[in-house]
Design a binder for these strands. Structure first.
Lengths: 340, 340
DNA sequence: AACGTCCATGTGATCGATCACTCGGATGTT
DNA sequence: AACATCCGAGTGATCGATCACATGGACGTT
């Protein structure tokens, strides 16, 4: 900047004023032009470090997430966050805390926040790949923060999560509206699986609202992977009065259901309707027939988190925000066979 | 820091010396202890902005990538980069330039580099989700840089790419060693698809080395998605002398091959062996039988890029690094039926 | 006792920007 | 002609750290 000043024959202050388009500086146009030309000539580029130091504002946000590597959700969330940040001229400092199953995971989370604070970020997003309740690092309170697909145990940090209850309700209703009354729901049994409980509730609420008896035999517990889906399908379809539709816990288990249906010679959707959860493109869109599934709003949550973060001084109190899920209709749902 | 100095009754300099463990400062242990205690007490945290400004080193790296959102590869690459960065105490500033098909994509790339330079990053990684050749932004030369899964048109930037040729060679050889001689390779026809050409070469080289005639009918062009895979399988299996093995361009098309095989009543691997490419866990591991596939070294490339970036002053000349791919063996390959 | 040496610690400049305040000169007013 | 006003532009402090250099006191030597 000093070089620019020298080249233009003015002071550093003037350069700063011109380059920042200071509102009421009243600098004449020809001086401005001279400064701009000089800046171009010497190849001037703002040093945001210096500006950040002076302004106490880095225009950088921290994004902490566990296990970025193994889930496709992360990318959508990062993209949402990044888009919102970019629109406001901010950049994202990313931190992956690794596997959540690691014993020192919360220590890594603490370290991440510490690192980000040392770098003077303007705010921090902590994101999870599945809906959980956590005890956020204490240092988080020093800066605006938003949790994504997470809730704080004490509720003292703003968070955004999918509306799992309504999602399950809508998915179930979708099946009911197509005429199904025997709707199974394989779910998972995992301590702290907030989503599983909410979805089960939503499923039951939909049945209740449509006066359909809630048959306990249709709710079973299996791992939410492909083999688990196969097992679930095998168990459910072996019942005396088998379901005509299965609302799976996720797309992977839906793929397992597809596989078992094929083994049994059942056609989807004519013999069996299937609804998934997650909208994993690689699975849902590629299966034959295409899987109707509930999409989790990962992009939207990432976007909301950053957008909210940047305006957080106007909402000083932590809030718990919820975003609806969208049903992506493909071809795995049809009315049940008249006979069944 | 001033507060700490005051609390400990020493000068700022002393605090700095103690906290940075200055080698030959000769500060007595009791002073050190006093300073440390004071730092703890006032809750001191380094302001890396200030340090970065003084040292002209932010310990922050830029990671620019297109289309983070839609591919699972991105996460592995980011994870690799992040791990390498973290081991060296660096953090990653992430920038997604969006869809590569967008007309102003290279402009966004330029802006990204500009933004990162303003933030004084110590180096920049530009990553792609598929092997391409680009014209890197001019400003990239101002800072150490590495391209991942990309090559610079003029070769003046260090890059790291998978060894596609050898990968295809190895995949093909894997099939040959199991006894196959009729090996098909559906490929794609896309301008600038560096990978497709290299893989086709590798495939042919393997056939040649094993004295197997290269039947042009076995190399066909189809889109590299699931429907494309189905079509490819249909075309290939309708030949008078059909292949006993298909080496697919990627896992999605392999999934299409599976689907068509099922329609025809062919068992994999006993009637048809299949090898994929990419190791998309959601597909390859979940298909039945599990898909044997060539894994692209995304994690390793991300890791290498950052590791190299951090030591780049010792390799001032741009180099073109290549990383081997690893064959992930599952259950989709068996010897051909004796009759066929 | 006078002087040199060494060691622990302090002083002040510096990185590159921003900003409150100051200043000199042109113009207008009486 | 003397004075007030205004405007463009400069001066110097500041953000929080680091570092070359300065300083002052304890100790040893002659």
């Amino acid at each position: 900047m000093r070089d620019v000043a020298e080249a233009a024959g003015v002071s550093q202050t003037t350069v700063s004023l011109v380059l920042n388009d200071a509102a009421n500086s009243g600098i004449p146009d020809n001086t401005k032009a001279r400064v701009r030309a000089a800046a171009d000539e010497v190849g001037y580029r703002t040093n945001r470090l210096a500006r950040a130091m002076r302004l106490d504002r880095t225009e950088t946000l921290g994004f902490v997430s566990e296990n970025i590597a193994t889930t496709p959700f992360a990318t959508r969330m990062i993209k949402g966050a990044q888009d919102a940040a970019w629109e406001a001229g901010h950049l994202l400092l990313i931190f992956d805390t690794g596997a959540i199953t690691s014993p020192n995971h919360s220590e890594r989370e603490r370290l991440a926040v510490e690192q980000l604070l040392e770098r003077q970020v303007d705010g921090i997003v902590i994101a999870s790949m599945y809906h959980r309740v956590i005890e956020p690092p204490a240092a988080l309170s020093e800066v605006p923060a938003v949790l994504v697909d997470l809730r704080a145990k004490n509720g003292m940090v703003t968070s955004v999560v999918p509306d799992e209850h309504r999602a399950a309700y809508d998915a179930t209703r979708h099946l009911i509206e197509r005429g199904h009354t025997r709707i199974a729901h394989p779910t998972i049994d995992y301590p702290g699986a907030v989503a599983a409980a909410a979805r089960l509730d939503g499923y039951r609420a939909a049945l209740l609202d449509h006066a359909i008896a809630d048959d306990p035999a249709l709710v079973i517990t299996e791992p939410s992977d492909t083999p688990g889906g196969r097992t679930a399908a095998r168990r459910l379809l072996s019942l005396d009065d088998p379901p005509t539709a299965i609302f799976c816990y996720n797309d992977q288990s839906a793929m397992g259901v597809y596989q078992h249906a094929a083994e049994r010679g059942l056609q989807i959707p004519s013999d069996l309707s299937v609804v998934g959860f997650d909208d994993q493109e690689l699975i849902a869109a590629e299966l034959v027939p295409g899987l109707t599934t509930m999409a989790l709003p990962h992009y939207e949550m990432g976007y909301w988190a950053v957008e909210h973060l940047l305006g957080i001084d106007s909402h000083p109190d932590p809030i718990q925000h919820t975003i609806p899920c969208r049903l992506v209709e493909r071809s795995s749902v049809a009315p049940p066979r008249p006979g069944s």
